[in-house]
């Protein structure tokens, strides 16, 4: 059965490529730091399951040390000039979009096939890993098409991949690091503590204030934890179920669904949701690492108001 481990083997190979490409870039004065950083991640993908918890912890500390001591840099190596790109763009035309579209297309067709044909019952792909397996398949297909059609130099994929990898840098592992912080937060009982704090300040008598506190609690806790998933069970236990559903007779489907969506407003406003907010800033090479968050705050606040209204009206008055 194809499961996550197959993907880890592939990812390990890609990160090894980033390490090699970084080491080859002489224009980057910190190239060995970059190479070591990516090589450690390749080790994590390939051998993480054999290192043991402490071993993995040491690996994490090494990654942090490299990033924290600013041993990662960026090269200035130009793979092709702007002029060459214009020429090549004119030569290949709109067909250049096709390899880029292969990846979403594979995900699309694959998801349909998996859900609506007997493919699922065959047990070929681990259902828990199916989206990522399809993504990996798409990447491999796109890679094959690029090579067969464009015939790039042998190490071009390695160089181009590490050019982009180094423009993102440490931000690439921030989401994973935050996920492990979440594990520690859970082990240290942060959720129960916050639940108890919120539970102690619940206003009595006003349904609207309780709704407001529930939505704001979701936003703030989501901003702290970086995702609404960690916040929801806590806020449901502290306010949602005892006060809004049992105490005031609110519609549980509304309280549940729109409560979660209030949390999503928090996700839009926090650097802790790094894969949505910090990584794209790096990926688009923005000067301000909080540029994406700044853009999202007005939409998030407006949607928070909308959600509070929906919670109050649909939850209690429909």
């Amino acid at each position: 059965m194809i499961n996550l481990h197959w993907l880890y083997v592939l990812a390990g190979a890609v990160f090894t490529g980033f390490a090699i490409g970084s080491a080859r870039d002489e224009t980057n004065s910190k190239r060995w730091g970059n190479a070591a950083f990516w090589a450690l991640l390749a080790v994590s993908f390939w051998f993480g399951d054999f290192l043991g918890d402490i071993g993995n912890g040491v690996l994490v500390l090494l990654l942090v040390a490299i990033a924290g001591a600013h041993l990662i840099g960026r090269g200035t190596k130009q793979t092709t000039s702007g002029e060459e790109r214009e020429r090549s763009s004119a030569r290949y035309g709109n067909k250049l979009f096709l390899p880029a579209l292969v990846i979403p297309f594979t995900a699309f067709i694959g998801t349909l096939l998996f859900n609506y044909t007997p493919l699922k019952a065959l047990g070929l792909i681990d259902p828990k890993a199916v989206t990522l397996v399809l993504f990996g398949t798409g990447v491999i297909l796109a890679m094959i098409i690029c090579h067969a059609w464009l015939r790039p130099p042998a190490l071009a994929a390695v160089d181009e991949g590490s050019r982009l990898a180094n423009s993102i840098g440490w931000a690439m592992v921030l989401p994973q690091m935050l996920a492990s912080l979440g594990v520690i937060f859970a082990a240290a009982g942060i959720g129960t503590t916050i639940g108890a704090l919120v539970g102690a300040i619940i206003p009595s008598g006003s349904i609207f204030l309780a709704v407001l506190l529930y939505a704001l609690g979701m936003v703030v806790f989501t901003m702290i934890m970086g995702n609404a998933f960690a916040a929801f069970p806590v806020m449901a236990a502290a306010i949602g179920v005892p006060i809004l559903i049992h105490g005031s007779g609110g519609n549980p489907a509304v309280i549940g669904a729109v409560g979660m969506l209030s949390g999503f407003c928090g996700t839009l406003m926090t650097p802790m949701a790094a894969n949505f907010n910090i990584v794209p800033a790096a990926l688009l090479e923005l000067k301000n690492q909080y540029g994406v968050i700044k853009m999202q705050v007005p939409t998030a606040l407006a949607m928070l108001i909308v959600n509070v209204i929906i919670l109050y009206v649909a939850g209690f008055h429909l």
Partner: peptide, 20 residues
């Protein structure tokens, strides 16, 4: 715990194999 959490969440970082 830090190491275990990091190792269990490797799937979050898989997406970057699209970069090449």
């Amino acid at each position: 715990t830090l190491g275990h959490g990091f190792n269990e969440n490797r799937y979050v970082t898989i997406i970057w194999m699209i970069l090449p």
